[in-house]
């Protein structure tokens, strides 16, 4: 019996490309997210990886209801997320929170830490009555490993890692069920990155949170995720458990992506077989026909240009969107 907290089906988000000054007209669409389906189970971490421009962050924004979807549906605890209004929507906004990438721009420099972390209570006063807010904020700072005495300091008085902790405290304030983490550690130094990753792991256990963990660093994603979705040009090309994706990838893109990650061990230099992809990701305004990866794929045949491969179970136990899916171990 699986308990899905979020179910996403055929989610589409297109942004119009408009030209002209006075008489604007639409000349095309950026197909940022183009038919994505997945489930997020209660208490799990779903990692989403892919190169820049593949639609990871747009997916996050649509899930947060910051952007209306162009098509498709999503349910939160069985109820249609995109149809919610009024009180129900306010409740949804409590339940799904986000941690952003850049801790330098995502905090208002003119607000104290107490104001930043306490601001969600202004909008959702039912969570914490006025008198108890200061104490709640202190507790939150303590939970994320900051000194509660620093409640009156400003963001510039903190380092990058500490600021990311402030962002996490703010996301935790309303006791959400899901936190969308959009590249939460990519702006941090290695030694600080580990601290924040451990914190995210601890909080998940403590509060029973579900994470959608978006990152481009495959090592970071492996460390935190239970399941992983690999995105390419607005589509999920392969999805499975962390072990399935990292140990038994079947999609050529996943294999190329994994093999390109440098492994911090000079002994393996020259022994690993690295799949070199040519060129860059094509423009999402005009994606290739059929399989979107075919222009960079070494396995491409005629059928790849004609027929779009569906994300279904093929050779392995997990779904893969490739006509010629085959298992290949690329991680040493």
């Amino acid at each position: 019996m699986t308990d899905n907290i979020i179910e996403v089906r055929d989610l589409v988000k297109h942004f119009p490309v408009r030209v002209g000054v006075l008489f604007k007209h639409t000349v095309g669409h950026v197909r940022a997210v183009d038919g994505v389906s997945f489930d997020l189970r209660r208490g799990e971490t779903l990692g989403v990886v892919g190169e820049s421009g593949c639609g990871k962050s747009t997916l996050a924004q649509v899930l947060m209801r910051l952007e209306p979807p162009t098509g498709g549906s999503a349910t939160f605890e069985g109820r249609d997320m995109f149809a919610m209004k009024g009180a129900e929507l306010r409740k949804l906004r409590r339940d799904i929170q986000i941690v952003l990438q850049d801790p330098y721009t995502s905090l208002n420099p003119r607000m104290t830490v107490g104001d930043i972390v306490g601001e969600p209570f202004e909008i959702h006063p039912e969570v914490a009555p006025k008198g108890s807010r200061a104490k709640k904020v202190r507790d939150l700072l303590d939970v994320v490993g900051l000194n509660p005495e620093h409640i009156n300091r400003y963001p510039h008085q903190f380092s990058g890692g500490q600021r990311q902790r402030i962002g996490i405290a703010r996301a935790l304030a309303l006791r959400p069920k899901v936190i969308v983490c959009d590249e939460p550690v990519s702006a941090l130094d290695v030694s600080i990155q580990a601290q924040v990753m451990n914190l995210l792991g601890d909080l998940q256990t403590e509060f029973g949170l579900s994470y959608v963990f978006i990152a481009h660093d495959l090592s970071v994603v492996r460390h935190l995720s239970d399941r992983v979705a690999v995105m390419y040009l607005g589509k999920i090309v392969e999805i499975g458990t962390e072990q399935e994706i990292y140990e038994h990838p079947t999609h050529p893109y996943t294999q190329a992506l994994l093999s390109a990650v440098p492994v911090p061990d000079p002994e393996l230099r020259g022994q690993r077989k690295v799949i070199r992809l040519e060129g860059d990701v094509p423009s999402p305004v005009d994606p290739p026909s059929g399989c979107r990866f075919r222009t960079r794929c070494w396995k491409a045949q005629d059928i790849c240009a004609e027929e779009e491969p569906a994300l279904i179970t093929r050779v392995a136990a997990h779904p893969s969107a490739c006509h010629f899916a085959e298992e290949k171990s690329v991680v040493p």
Binding site: Q193, A194, M197, N198, R222, H223, Y246, L258, V261, V331
Partner: peptide, 12 residues
């Protein structure tokens, strides 16, 4: 403190 692609550990 480095997360590794080839190893999955519990705590960094």
């Amino acid at each position: 403190s480095l997360p590794r692609l080839d190893l999955k550990g519990a705590e960094l």
